[in-house]
Design a protein around this nucleic acid. Structure first.
Lengths: 354, 354
DNA sequence: ATGAAAGCGCTAACAG
DNA sequence: CTGTTAGCGCTTTCAT
């Protein structure tokens, strides 16, 4: 039986190798290698000839073969989560921008269940692909950082963690959520509001807890006023529920710090339905500053965090670590970088001056 | 000066190779290879012993070496754009989900300037990394598809294109934007609205043009009513401007089909500022169905497109093509898949029944 | 300035 | 069931 003949004699494009180029140029593979790597020690005439053949044959060096030899791949592993949300997708965008500028490719891996212990699997896979470093862009949720204590030592690539609790011996880049929470709350106090409620994100998120702490900082309360706090889940719907619950628990509340803009949108809707005017009866500050926030009704005051910059910053850090480790400096001092958020004041929190 | 000594004597982890495992297990590398690849022909006892050594040494097969031999890498290249927008980031999420389920890793490359001709560069790079296939998840803008005519032939990997004009010999997956546009407009007509304006996306986007065509389909107008159309740029701000301009051009307009939800949000704000009631004076239908849309004031009727499914679908397609091409069937019939959008009716387009 | 040899870590193709 | 021999495509010595 003759199989695979006939039509399949179509050009099944074989990869052009350095050897073919060498043969056609009548030089050794070595010289070709020197040409494509821009080594100085090649006669101009030779270089010209080789380049010409490369062009004619459409030769493309194999990154794979290179990686195998050199032990690294010019690739960064990115472990992400929740790409459907505003923050994470901006972050990834920043990561990609900076990686691109630094000449790195990206190997992307998204996690679905934040808790589950696919960690080892993912890390192993990236390692087996010779990534030069890893961006851990998954929020700290529950104790999904537990693996770090055991796992880190055997990891031979630099890692930068995003949005997590700074940790000795770990490189971390995060937004100063606590400060952001405080800024939001202090702003409300400045505006003369008295009783400031809080709708948090899911409290197993580190970032959510930090924002809550900021709120507490501003209120200078030692005792947490439980009836002023409701836990949300980042969705508009939970914001809506949150406001109702909060007002039940504390009818004289006149302002709320809502821990993201999407929940704030839900609050806005609930307020409307309940006949509560914003900001006259109830002031609101959100967190994120999504592109939509300025178009809410009323336009939402919020805390802007530059997630793109967060991603860029992380990659820059990682770049340094990689460079250092490739130059043999095995131990790089790891540091924590806190990016400062920015208060954006719009109508939802500004009381009309009489 | 002694540099890099002292502490840096820390274990600079060498990669564990199959050879070491073989030696320690007292078998050949071949047998180890068989074990890690789950080949049947290994004595249970041998397998046990090898696995044990693997575990003890923490051995991890090198994907890179494998790729070099086999000529493919278990990786899909993804070329994306505009990750900061709702649609694209959902799409990527879908791509990742399905890729993960099919056992592929993702090599991500984002483009910044949709027009610029980095195409060759990106493609070359992916090719040099032995990607098994490519998802071209960049919207068709301007003539950024021009390269296809020249470039495709020398590409030896399957490609699936997202959100572009179906094309003979190309695999394309897209949402039926035209149908969506028609559905939105027909719904407005059904509700008794008479003069239906249009705020489009940037008209160099194929998707934007399709939605416009849908609107025209519904109006059954041969002559395009230019004064009923304004071109936006997907931002809320452009929606705001768009409404003002539209009303100037055509004061008796009583409904608008706005080509994405973000612009619709801008329209909503403009309407409020101008004292126009929605939907009493002006009805609105958007496009996308973002999570926020249901929380706009009033809640926004819109055309939902399932971008996650779009991404998944594309990867499934690509998976088939890859399989086919690896089995030697060089030419795979390429098809176009159109996903159907869905009309979501909320308050912004429903006229109160008297 | 150029080339020859060795080998990165693994698997394919054949032996036994 | 197991081992041997090649060699994927390239770079790294080390010669010349």
């Amino acid at each position: 039986m003759i199989s695979g003949l006939g039509l399949s004699s179509m050009t099944v494009k074989k990869r052009v190798t350095i050897r073919q180029v060498a043969k056609e140029s009548e030089v050794s593979t070595q010289t070709v290698s020197r040409v494509i790597n821009h080594h100085p020690n090649v006669a101009p005439e030779t270089r010209r000839r080789v380049l010409q053949v490369i062009d004619r044959l459409g030769y493309q060096p194999s990154s794979i073969a290179r990686s195998l030899i050199q032990g690294y791949s010019g690739t960064l592993g990115v472990v992400g989560y929740g790409l459907e949300y505003f923050g994470p997708s901006r972050t990834l965008s920043g990561v990609e921008q900076q990686a691109n500028e630094l000449g790195y490719s990206l190997l992307l891996s998204l996690m679905r269940q934040p808790e589950k212990n696919d960690v080892e699997q993912v890390l192993r896979d990236m390692f087996s692909r010779y990534v030069d470093g890893i961006i851990w862009a998954m929020p700290e949720i529950g104790n999904n950082r537990a693996w770090i204590r055991q796992g880190t030592p055997q990891l031979s690539v630099p890692i930068v963690f995003l949005s997590m609790q700074p940790h000795p011996n770990l490189s971390v880049v995060a937004v100063d959520n606590r400060r952001g929470g405080r800024m939001a709350t202090e702003h409300l106090l400045d505006q003369g509001y008295q009783t400031i409620g809080l709708i948090t994100g899911p409290l197993d998120w580190w970032e959510a807890r930090q924002r809550q702490l900021g709120w507490q900082d501003a209120l200078k309360e030692v005792i947490t006023e439980d009836h002023l706090v409701v836990e949300g889940d980042w969705t508009a719907e939970s914001g809506e529920r949150g406001l109702r619950q909060l007002l039940e628990q504390c009818p004289d509340m006149d302002a709320v710090f809502v821990c993201n803009d999407q929940m704030a949108l839900g609050v806005l809707q609930a307020a409307r339905q309940m006949g509560i005017r914003v900001p006259e009866d109830l002031a609101l500050v959100g967190f994120d500053d999504t592109p939509e926030s300025a178009y809410f009704y009323p336009p939402l005051s919020t805390v802007r965090q530059d997630m793109v910059e967060l991603g860029r910053c992380a990659v820059r850090e990682l770049g340094c670590m990689i460079e250092a480790s490739q130059q043999g400096r095995a131990v790089v001092e790891s540091k924590a970088i806190l990016l400062q958020p920015q208060l954006v004041i719009r109508e939802s929190s500004v009381r009309e001056r009489g």
